[in-house]
Write a protein that binds this DNA or RNA. Sequence first.
DNA 1: TTGAAAGCGCTACCAT
DNA 2: ATGGTAGCGCTTTCAA
Lengths: 355, 355
Amino acid sequence: MNKKSMNLKEFSELLGLSQTTVSRALNGYPEVRESTRLKVLDAARAHNYTPNARAKRLATGKAMTIGHVLPVSKKHEMVNPIFADFIAGAGEIYSDNGFDLLLSVVDDVSEEASYRKLVSRGAVDGLIVHGPKVNDSRIALLRELGVPFVVHGRSTEIDTDYCWVDVNNKRAFQRVTEFLLDLGHRRIALLNGLADMDFATRRGAGYVAALESRDVAVDPALMFHEEMTENFGYETARRLLSGDNAPTAFVASSIIPGIGIRRAISDAGLTMGRDVSVVIHDDALSYFSNDGDEPAFTAVRSSVRQAGRHVAQALIDRIATPDAPVHQEMLEAVLTVGRSTGQAPALRQVLDQGK
Amino acid sequence: MNKKSMNLKEFSELLGLSQTTVSRALNGYPEVRESTRLKVLDAARAHNYTPNARAKRLATGKAMTIGHVLPVSKKHEMVNPIFADFIAGAGEIYSDNGFDLLLSVVDDVSEEASYRKLVSRGAVDGLIVHGPKVNDSRIALLRELGVPFVVHGRSTEIDTDYCWVDVNNKRAFQRVTEFLLDLGHRRIALLNGLADMDFATRRGAGYVAALESRDVAVDPALMFHEEMTENFGYETARRLLSGDNAPTAFVASSIIPGIGIRRAISDAGLTMGRDVSVVIHDDALSYFSNDGDEPAFTAVRSSVRQAGRHVAQALIDRIATPDAPVHQEMLEAVLTVGRSTGQAPALRQVLDQGK
DNA sequence: TTGAAAGCGCTACCAT
DNA sequence: ATGGTAGCGCTTTCAA
């Protein structure tokens, strides 16, 4: 049953050609007569011959593989859903360029060791860095290892040059906050990611900038930096809503605490979009959870997928041309807003103009 | 900068041992003196020597890699969030067993070709089949290719033996529907996945079984089989809620249409958990969206991750022992219910007993 | 335009 | 318990 596939030696003998010529024909070298190439290509299809990837990788010294490291915590059984979309976008680009995608799932404590091993084993030609911290040690590590890499996001306190692709988190959060201020909100809670995460810092800066520009006092009691779990959203919102001087609006850094916030609002007998405004932001996107015009959740994720494409392309380019100028790209944050507020079109307009 | 790592030849010369002995020591062969092994292991650590994976794979004829194919549609920019958790769970097991995870992202039309190529290139030792249809052609294909594989889910109309790991979708949906019936609901809408998906068929069967066992007529106008998009949930719920004889409860097959349903309910000026009950089911789990007792969303995903572990382990076992008896495992569906209905504890009890 | 043959870095068989 | 060496299946000089 297990039909052992044929190898180059057998295949070339079958054609009455040398392995060299067949290899050349298959790999698009120019010095092969066109008629020969066609013959080889046809025969390959007919006999279902595919060069063995393992041999190819050894011979060329390239893995033709990009590594993504996904650190998971034993404690929090939770993966950011954003990850799936990002990977999907990146994977599209890899497929188009003949690269494989190696996904390494590791305990978050052994992340650095994982990068090290991936490189020294020669399993990958390049790596993607996910979720950079404000000062991320992985950047120095990968530089030291001499492996091409691209960061999805940035690491603000690192001052060496490195490739990154990021969205304008600060501006996105500034706009969202301004929008809520325009609606008349004065007490706006911010449920942000951990303070050492770069994206969280930038988002927080946008939130603060918006408040300050309108002379609204920044209340530290409304700003939270925690791991983005559902419970974080639920407990925080519940506490705030049942206390004095409750906020009238929430901005959440991810859909996961956002779900918790929704529960808390519902539990409090309040109605979202009427009694309380909620904006949930996920990489590259903000939206109102009760949007009526378009599928907000879908839009979020589609946008993340696009980011994945950009990052992957940047890395492939870097692998092909190691000495190319450092790639640093800023993606515009896409914002989708709902009509339930009655003012969404205005924001949309503002954003389009802001483009 | 790019320190080209040393190879076995150099490393063994450095030690004054043969490549053979070093290789044996590194790979745990018994015929090496323990003192020699320690010496080798220490030196490897000291000189940072890691055997080249590309050479190893060629020499052993094994890829030590498991393939997951993720078909994405160009039309629907959406990946089921479940996928990330499943992958995370599987990846844990792979890491523990020295396997790499190769994720192949392909356009959904070229899915079969992707499996074919992965195998004939020799890039993987085994494959996971995601999202099986009622009669899935991939099972015959992989059998023909002679590659070990495990299906996450089942393919009901296939009667040959193959490995699968599935949750009890029928029972889960039957229970959920019974629960809503117990609450007094008589018009319960079911927003299910596409009719050719195996999980959707089983879930539909559970829903129908519950209604029939209580002598509640099954209304075809309340059953929907579509792709699980946010818009599907939104438009369907909106239409139903604004029409005559609107349902008082919804059961959704995935969180994605579930988000749409929530929007529609909110838009209609209704409150979830009070005016309308909603149960959203995702692989292996059901929950009420306004659960107050525990983080439902997190529980869903944690459960999916567990499924990923089971599937991965089954495949690894199969690769190690191809002639082992066919692995077929049924995971119990975990159900989480919220207190907002006031009757959740009763259901929880029922479920616990049902175990 | 084609071919012969030397690697790529490791494993595993056969000796010792 | 250790070593020599022939592959694994391909790419890539170097020759013709």
